[in-house]
Design a protein around this nucleic acid. Sequence first.
DNA 1: CTTGTCATGTAAGAGGTTACATGATTCG
DNA 2: CGAATCATGTAACCTCTTACATGACAAG
Lengths: 181, 181
Amino acid sequence: MDIQYAILGFLSWRPFSGYDLKKIISESDLFYWSGNNNQIYKSLIDLHQTNQVTQQILYQENLPSRKVYTITEKGIHTLRAWLLSHPELPEFRNNFMIQLAWADPLSKEEMDALLGTYEEEIDVQLRMRLVQAQAQRAPQRTPRESYLWARISENMTASYQHELDWVREVRKALNEEKFMS
Amino acid sequence: MDIQYAILGFLSWRPFSGYDLKKIISESDLFYWSGNNNQIYKSLIDLHQTNQVTQQILYQENLPSRKVYTITEKGIHTLRAWLLSHPELPEFRNNFMIQLAWADPLSKEEMDALLGTYEEEIDVQLRMRLVQAQAQRAPQRTPRESYLWARISENMTASYQHELDWVREVRKALNEEKFMS
DNA sequence: CTTGTCATGTAAGAGGTTACATGATTCG
DNA sequence: CGAATCATGTAACCTCTTACATGACAAG
């Protein structure tokens, strides 16, 4: 469960409740999970049982109690071991590429409409990222950490930007009448 | 099950056995599934039961029989409906970015080693893609289809290339002594 | 004489998602 | 008056992976 490491990472920043993590993860696309309760609450229970985090219940007036989790030394060790472990390759899962791979039976107009819809979708995503960039707050404990978070965010933005450039180029080429069908 | 559409796509090209599809999918990274038996054989049984493909058993001497599947009109319709359906956004799942996000506790040397390993991994992947590019054979039924497959392949290669450029830049910046830790 | 290929399939389980359930409070 | 937020958790289900099982033949 890779999400456990992501959660340990957050808790290495500062204590969080399950609800906090759920919100952060579901709004992030670096932390690509849907942010569903099942995974997060189960992970926290598991981390607690294995003494990688401690649990603190905060009773609140007129609001449900919060369970706030704090990382332990053991948790920090697990995280560090993972940080030093062999990096995984990125997974580029792009169902649209598969759609295109079999799209030759479509007419010129249908193909252009399909590419146009994709272009629009990517464009919306890019604009949303640019707006949210300010709202995103990263742990800024050292200049290096701030730098890393900025670069990671840039990496994701660039991925969408390249996708947008790509689809515009393909669309243009297909409209240049070289391909009759 | 998106893999069903991928399979229907292949069968819209020409008939295949489950074993054929398994090999193609497990060697491809556009078709990003692992290519395990379970999914592919189950999908084919399902497609057969819903009359989207027909099954033909070819008995062979000294070899196990092959079940070769051919797409039906109904299958072609399902595929066409999917081709015209709303494109999904790509999913960039990059566990290494998550690793980096929490990597600030690492020393300068450990960080550089981590980035170096990632750089190496991506580089290997890129080289492998360039070698396999010739081996890859696409359906070349029309010039447009050939063009699309070439561009799709380029899209994937470019993703790795950008990742490589990115990691080299980050690594360089972190070694420029601006960040002491 | 073990490993790999051909070719089918099943079993077990991890990983992940949507939806439901509770119950008080606040916002439009 | 309905919806959203806070906050926890469970149920049901889909997706996907690894590993196992068969059995003949070929190659190192």
